[in-house]
Structures are given as structure tokens and as C-alpha cells.
Write a protein that binds this DNA or RNA. Structure first.
Lengths: 212, 212
DNA sequence: TTCACTACTGAGCACTTGTAAAGTATTAGG
DNA sequence: CCTAATACTTTACAAGTGCTCAGTAGTGAA
């Protein structure tokens, strides 16, 4: 792989490019199926060139997930900061962790609204949703480099939805509602990703039924 | 890999052993992450020895899925044949395809009963559930050898649940109920697989709420 | 006992994997 | 212009990939 059209990029920019490419590839093949060579080729550099930026294959995965977390936090900010119409955070991946109740005076959005917003956002980025779907399943085994990450993530999301459900108040206990919402979300997204023509927003609206 | 304790097995038996081992490994690493060498080692033979039985890596995957289909059909038979307490078919994998209405005189079980039975069975075989969870996500990309299989499977399951829902009758349209049930099932199973101590049966009972 | 059959091995192919070491070319700051 | 930092390449490696081919050893039937 001789590169003579050497385009030298500043580290930050190259890193962003790498993460974008790697995200797409991991979504397609999973982490075990990911090859550094493919990522490098996609970025127009050699494999050691790639390793110069991410250190190792595990390092690359960590970079991807950290980038996602940052993106989610950003998206959350605009979700909570703006009136309930801002761009929300990814679904199978919403990091609603930052303080929820001490909001900036705007009335905290309802569970239904948050879900709708998350769904709306995810509908626009199937690649990311697929990334999380694949990684989430792959990381079920404890020796996967992202195992701990996804265990923590599941707990975090459940806690977040539980808080929302508690605020909303409903017949079922909030923890139960949380489990149900999360399960529905993940399940519907899988169905969506597998039927090419389908519309996630419509699918969710149909399926969700009576949320509190 | 010198094998001097050559234990020669009849083809059927060896094949069964291979499929069992491969099932476990695919559940752990996915299909992309599966190595023929690992499977061979697990069975106490060499890689060409393994290939003698399954032909190729893709052939191995096909064998796994076909074996699962057969198992599911068998389980379905006893589910429908016996009073609603027989051993049912796997959840993320229930092949309820054979004629459902022309049953053998026994009253066809309700949707709720079928779900409960499926859940009961899956609770006893987390390895299988994980296999399907991993493969289902991995095969989202169209060039995965099991892609078509899982597309067809999703449609089949949706149709089957729809039929059950139609019989049960409820407020929502049967197709919607089907999507919801399938999504819930897949989602709850993911949660279950990720929390080591949890009990799937309990989890399902809590989460499912008001099925028709 | 012989013979066809078949489960299986050993060696090896052409290739890809992730990673290390060392060097080169480009850029930024003084 | 010079120098330090750094983005990147070349080369290499040891191991692993799925798979083929040619052979060997055990088995059941004639």
C-alpha cells in the first residue's frame, strides 16, 4: 500500500476521519470482524499510520465509544436546553446522565416526549443505531473489550428512564416501565434495521401504545 | 496439532458435537470472530478434519441454523401436541411455522401462554438465546451469510404472532401487537443476558404487562 | 481376507492479522 | 533559515485465516 499522494492532516482532523470510518465498519462487521487494514485504507493511510493515532485496535474501539458519548452529551444539551423540539440524543445510546431535575428552568420533558425525540434522532442515523445494535450483542460476552462499557450503559439508561417514569407517574412501578421502554426501543430498532423500507418513527408510534 | 489419541466418531455424532461447540463459540464471538481452528480444537480434531464434515465456514453456519430450526420444530411439536405445559420453542428463535390452526384437537394456546412457554424454555438455554442475539445483530448487513435467513425469520415470527394475536383479539391491530411482542421479547432478553443474576421468567412477567 | 468406504491427519498454500522499530517528509515556531 | 515536533511510511515479524490436496488408518460388508 504505497501512498505517494501523501495528504498530511492535523491529528484532530485525522482522528475524526478515522473514527467516522471505523464507526461505519464496526457497524457492518462488528469489532471482532473489524480489520485495521480496512480502516486505514478507508482513511487513505497505512496501518502503522493508523496505529500512530489510536495505539491499538482496542484503543480504536475506545475512541469510537468515547466519541459517541461526547456526541450524545452534546445532543442531550440541546435536547434539554431548547424547548422540547431540539435535536435529541441517540436511542439505543441516549446518555441522559447529566443532572436531569436541576434543569435550566425549562419544564422537564415527559417520558413520551424524550422517547419521541430519541426516535426522531435515531431515524436519521441508522449507521449509528446499527453500530450500537451490533456492539451491544457482541459485547455480551465478558471478555469483549466493550463489555463493561455496555453493562454500565444499560444501567445508566435504565436509571434515566426510571427517573422520567417516576416523574410521569403511571400504573406500573417506574423500574418496570423503564425496562419495558428500553426493551421496546431496542427491539423496534432491530426490526427497523432489518426491513429496509420501513420508517422508524412510524414503527415506534404504532408499537409503543400507551406510555404513561 | 498432532492428534494421536485418534477417536474416530460416526459422522452424525461428530456433526452433533461440532454444532454444539460451534454454537457456543458463535454465541461468544459472532460469526466473523469465529475461527475454524477453535471449533476444531474444541472437538479434538484438526481443521481439515472439521472441514470434512461441514465443507466450509459458511457451511458450518448453515449447519448450525438448520440444526436450530430442526430443534425448534421438535420443540414446537411437543408444545402444541401436549397440553399447554410441554417444552416450548426458543424465544428469539421460535419457529412456530407449521400449521397452527389445524391442530390435533387440543385447544390452540393463547398468545400469552405461548409467550410464557417460549420464555420458560429460553430461560433454560441462555447460550442459544445469546447465539441468536449476536447473529441477529451481526447479520443486519446484507453481505452476512445469515442475512437472508434472519430477514425471513423475522417475517415468519411476525406472521405467527400476528395469527395468535388475531385469535386472541384485542384493542390494537394484530400486526401491531405482533411487533410489540417481538420487540419486547428481544429487548428483554438482551437485558437479561447482560445482568448475570437476573431471572428471565420474572423479568418477562414484570415487563410484559397487559398482553391481550 | 479382501475391499470399498470414510473419518481423519500432515503439510502447505496464499493471504491477512495486529503490532513494533526505525526512518522520512512535512509542518510550525523561533 | 534552522530546528524541533510530528504525521506518516517502509519494512518486518510472528501468528493466524480459510481452505486444498494427497495420503493414512480404522470400519463394516462381501
Amino acid at each position: 500500500m504505497a501512498r505517494h499522494d501523501r495528504t498530511r492532516l492535523p491529528a484532530a482532523e485525522r482522528r475524526r476521519q478515522i473514527i467516522t470510518a471505523a464507526t461505519r465498519l464496526v457497524a457492518e462487521r462488528g469489532f471482532w470482524g473489524l480489520s485495521m487494514q480496512d480502516v486505514a485504507a478507508d482513511c487513505g493511510l497505512t496501518v502503522p499510520g493508523l496505529l500512530h493515532h489510536v495505539g491499538s485496535k482496542d484503543g480504536l474501539l475506545i475512541a469510537i465509544l468515547e466519541h459517541r458519548d461526547a456526541e450524545d452529551a452534546r445532543a442531550l444539551a440541546s435536547l434539554l436546553g431548547a424547548p422540547p423540539l431540539g435535536v435529541p440524543s441517540p436511542s439505543s445510546s441516549p446518555s441522559l446522565s447529566p443532572s436531569l431535575s436541576p434543569s435550566l428552568s425549562s419544564p422537564s420533558p415527559s417520558l413520551r416526549e424524550v422517547c419521541a425525540a430519541v426516535v426522531r434522532r435515531n431515524a436519521s442515523q441508522p449507521e449509528i443505531v446499527r453500530l450500537f445494535a451490533v456492539l451491544q450483542a457482541e459485547s455480551l460476552t465478558p471478555d469483549h473489550p466493550a463489555h463493561a462499557y455496555f453493562v454500565a450503559r444499560q444501567q445508566r439508561i435504565l436509571d434515566e428512564i426510571t427517573a422520567l417514569a417516576k416523574a410521569a407517574g403511571g400504573p406500573a412501578p417506574p423500574e418496570t416501565t423503564a425496562r419495558r421502554v428500553m426493551a421496546l426501543m431496542d427491539g423496534v430498532q432491530l426490526q427497523w434495521l432489518r426491513s429496509p423500507g420501513s420508517d422508524l418513527i412510524q414503527l415506534w408510534a404504532d408499537t409503543v401504545g400507551d406510555l404513561p
